[in-house]
Design a protein around this nucleic acid. Structure first.
Length: 479
RNA sequence: AGCGGGGUAGAGGAGAGGUACCUCGAGAGGCUCAUAACCUCUAGACGCCGGUUCGAUUCCGGCCCCCGCAACCA
């Protein structure tokens, strides 16, 4: 069966966030795991590039918008190299094909009678360029952020999507036990639907939102970013024309998975699913919601100055260690607090002293005492069922724990059997050599399990086993 | 207010109806193959109060605290 996995598309008004790195590394591990099992996989990511905020950010930087989004698109594209991502397809919502797809999505919903025009009256803060509700304003009607600006009452005619019409269908969809992971996010979505759905606005007047996809058949309106961006999950597959057949293969007749942050439940599991229902397209089979990474007990934010960027992680610890830290020490679905101090600790304890050191001590003995490389058997390279179950169940941390359990066992075996002593005495030499061979098989088995999670390390260990040589330090001690 | 998540040794985390596990740190031994690494042993913990149960830290209820749902942001 073909498989499909996508990240959400990050909005390009800031540098890549560590939370997005988490999301895309998790997606990558799944894509790699499936590919190892011989499945055909479509792995999608990209950038969300429309919207008023981006227009403004570009103006603020004195850049033209296209140049601005091009710059960010390339910043996000670099993640592929930095995080060793296995061949993701990279879509930009400013791609011509994507814009046509978004317009086709609009036409389909419209044909279904799910798009209508309505005058919206609200309190608008010019500073924020956003409509505000009463709780966003002071008692006197001033904006909480721009405290010197009084929100103005503004009326605007926009297009709305009949979200409310899909309440029953969404409830039914969310009743599938695997529609959202973890389970409690499903509960959240169901509660939200039960509380009553309000149709949402899907366009803005062109004067207010210049940088967006034009609404088909109405030059005065532009699509609001959500409507446009969500469509990327299928436009990336070539929908609607589907000349190459990817949509049929990877969406319609495959098991589809979306990865997203925990704040995305409403958008991914409800709004987007309602749009698909309206357009008569198959719903996403499963959406996985990861937790957030905090730093020093607080949400990362530029103003607090506690942002840890994925590129900083990679330049300090390297690609493989960054993947390791994200997969083992960040909880898949709960929030995790991360500080540089803790990152150093995990890196040294588990990669330098753990994995790296074990490989070094085993291969040093092998290089000196084995006459030839160990022949690996089929059994040495078989992946444990439990390991795969953990990965398929999004328990990346537990899958990693399993590997590190074996690393600990390798070290213990070495101390108990003392092959380094045995090889020095004629009458125990053969026994010592057999121990070393067993240890080499053991690290080979560890390497095989590392394939989807730490791909380069896995290759390095297996190469070292094949040539029977001690490798360069896999994880150098950081100074 | 409401909704959701969480409170586990000195620190940070995992886990689960019946010996509570991992990393760092502390104490005592051991080893020399290894990246001053590794192994063994020891001390030390399930927020509070009830309930269900033969048995609760785990399930249920109440309470107390922390975090997110608003922001440059995933």
């Amino acid at each position: 069966m073909a498989r499909y996995v996508t990240t959400t598309l990050p909005y390009v008004n800031a540098d890549p966030h560590i939370g997005f790195a988490l999301e895309i590394v998790q997606a990558d591990v799944l894509a790699r795991t499936w590919r190892l099992q011989g499945e055909e996989v479509f792995f999608n990511t990209g950038t969300d590039e429309h919207g008023q905020k981006i227009w403004e950010a570009a103006e603020k930087n004195g850049q033209d918008v296209q140049g601005y989004v091009d710059h960010y698109a390339s910043e996000f594209r670099k993640l592929k190299e930095a995080l060793a991502l296995d061949n993701p397809t990279f879509i930009r919502t400013t791609d011509e094909h994507h814009k046509r797809a978004a317009q086709e999505m609009w036409r389909r919903c419209e044909a279904k009678g799910d798009i209508y025009k309505k005058t919206y009256t609200g309190l608008y803060c010019v500073g924020c360029e956003l409509y505000k509700t009463e709780k966003d304003l002071t008692g006197e009607g001033f904006c909480l952020i721009h405290t010197n600006l009084k929100a103005e009452e503004v009326s605007e005619e926009n297009y709305f999507f009949r979200f409310s019409k899909y309440a029953d269908q969404l409830t039914k969809y969310m009743s599938r036990s695997d529609a959202a992971i973890p389970q409690w996010r499903r509960g959240e979505a169901l509660t939200f639907v039960a509380s009553g759905l309000e149709d949402f606005s899907i366009s803005r007047k062109k004067e207010r939102l210049v940088w967006g996809v034009p609404v088909p058949g109405d030059d005065t309106q532009v699509m609001y970013v959500w409507f446009d961006a969500l469509t990327d999950y299928i436009s990336t597959l070539g929908w609607p024309e589907d000349i190459e057949g990817n949509f049929a293969k990877f969406w319609e007749s495959s098991r589809t998975l979306q990865m997203a942050g925990k704040d995305q439940v409403r958008f991914q599991s409800l709004m987007w699913q309602a749009m698909l229902m309206s357009a008569d397209i198959k719903n996403t089979d499963q959406v996985f919601y990861h937790g957030f990474i905090t730093s020093g007990g607080q949400k990362m934010s530029k103003s607090l100055g506690n942002v840890i960027s994925p590129y900083e992680l990679v330049s300090k610890y390297g690609t493989e260690a960054t993947r390791y830290l994200l997969l083992r020490h960040v909880h898949p679905v709960e929030d995790t607090d991360v500080t540089w101090e803790r990152l150093d600790e995990w890196y040294t304890a588990n990669l330098v002293n753990g994995l790296g050191n074990l490989v070094a001590r085993v291969m040093k003995l092998a290089e000196e005492h084995l006459p030839q490389p160990v022949e690996l058997s089929l059994d040495d390279t078989r992946i444990e069922e439990l390991f795969l179950e953990h990965l398929e169940g999004f328990r990346f941390n537990e899958a990693m724990d399993l590997i590190w359990e074996h690393i600990g066992k390798g070290d213990a075996y070495m101390t108990e059997q003392e092959p380094y002593k045995k090889v020095k005495q004629e009458h125990t030499k053969a026994d010592g050599i057999a121990d070393i061979e067993r240890l080499v098989r053991h690290i080979a088995k560890i390497a095989v399990h590392l394939t989807p999670v730490l791909p380069k390390t896995s290759v390095a260990i297996l190469a070292s086993v094949r040539t029977n040589t001690k490798p360069e330090n896999l994880f150098p001690r950081s100074t």
